[in-house]
């Protein structure tokens, strides 16, 4: 589904942030991506999400060589990948419902289906009563759940989450990971970038460890440092 083969990445002429990344994420897999702050977790997620292109090596997403794709070929692939951003990136001038509906509306889904699917997904994340409020009126945890609803409403094949529990308390963090596990059971491949070791220890999923720009796969239960 997503395959890195000796991928390297640098910003401009700066030092290489990621080096010799080689890994394949299969359909329906679940991984934690861990590593200290500044290790390159967000950069690796951005490569998976096609927001960046590798500066060397081969990156294939859904069997497409990303380095060889034209810019206009990227949006259809991005729509198959849900992304939960660390800073939520909700649009304050839109309601909770309209924020979550964005991925459906930008592909021209009929409004009747938008209403049905968005209402269902917001109820799933526990925000069924907050459809028409502004994101500004929500707590950090609630905003995070709106961002999750937006990421999964179009039933993506892959869900990437960048520090999804970074701004919520431990209990909300555990609930968010359980939501991702539910989605995983429905067949979505999930990659969660986090440096919350306590949270990672609570869930039995394989870990990808980024350290000094290189990636290693750790067996369940192992832990960095």
């Amino acid at each position: 589904m997503i395959s890195f083969d000796n991928v390297g990445f640098r910003y401009g002429v700066g030092p290489e942030i990621l080096r010799d990344i080689s890994i394949t994420l299969e359909a329906g897999s679940f991984h934690f991506l861990t590593g200290p702050s500044g290790a390159g977790k967000s950069t690796l997620l951005n490569l998976m999400h096609l927001s960046l292109r590798p500066t060397r090596g081969l990156l294939t997403v859904f069997d497409k060589d990303i380095g060889a794709l034209r810019r206009r070929d990227l949006p259809p692939l991005r729509r198959r990948i849900g992304m939960v951003f660390q800073d939520f990136r909700l649009l304050d001038h839109l309601s909770v419902f309209d924020n979550a509906a964005l991925p459906l509306r930008l592909v021209g889904t009929r409004e009747k289906h938008v209403r049905r699917d968005v209402t269902e997904i917001l109820e799933w994340v526990g925000l069924g009563r907050e459809l028409n409020v502004s994101p500004r009126a929500l707590s950090g945890g609630e905003q995070q759940r709106v961002a999750i609803a937006r990421a999964v409403v179009a039933r993506p094949s892959v869900l990437l989450a960048d520090e999804p529990t970074g701004s919520v308390d431990e209990e909300i963090g555990r609930r968010i990971i359980r939501l991702f596990e539910e989605l995983h059971r429905l067949g979505t491949a999930v990659v969660i970038a986090t440096h919350n070791w306590d949270l990672v220890d609570r869930f039995p999923h394989p870990r990808l460890e980024l350290n000094d720009g290189q990636l290693v796969r750790l067996p369940d239960g192992d832990r960095y440092g």
Partner: peptide, 16 residues
Amino acid sequence: RPEIELLHRIGASDAF
């Protein structure tokens, strides 16, 4: 710009 980047990232085309 922030909204545009978000739309790009969730799969919006330039045309959209």
